[in-house]
Amino acid sequence: MQTEIIIAGFGGQGVMFIGQVLAYAAMDKGKQVTWMPSYGPEMRGGTANCIVVIADEEIGSPLVENPPASIVMNLPSLDKYEPLIKPGGVLIVNASMVDRAAQRDDITTILIPANDIAEEIGDKRLANMVATGALLGCLDIMTVKDLEAALEAHMPGRHKHLLPKNFEALRKGTEFAKQAIKK
């Protein structure tokens, strides 16, 4: 079993962190995992992305062309990655930052207003965790509980007071995605 996830957005939206939290959670579950960031000039002020590969056996390529899952936090990332998702895959779109509808009908697309939900919780910087929660609502690889445990275990002590709101963001994202799938 192998799952690949591309997470993309503007620098500062926390896309690298989403990938790291997924990687930590996968590692803690005893999986093999790679986290590959874009580190080129594009990360200096433009879009940032990272690719997470989670597998049961030794991972080959840390890069993937057609991932089965992706979180896109802004419009340039939607434009870039929507055509690349594997048919049958999952695309989480931060609808707060995107003003167009999804174009693919052969994948599950969740348009989630991640910034708005984050602001309701009290901090717009939680948009990345809202989107991550939405991904978990659509994928069977890990549960919200796994991610909460990873955040608890690996966040530095000085950030521990932020955990409850991060948990809330994950849960709200998951609930939103599950409702959206039902419709």
Binding site: A23, Q32, V33, T34, W35, P37, Y39, I59, P62, L63
Partner: peptide
Amino acid sequence: DGSIGQMMEP
């Protein structure tokens, strides 16, 4: 190469 330098793994 740069990818092994920059990526993260357990």
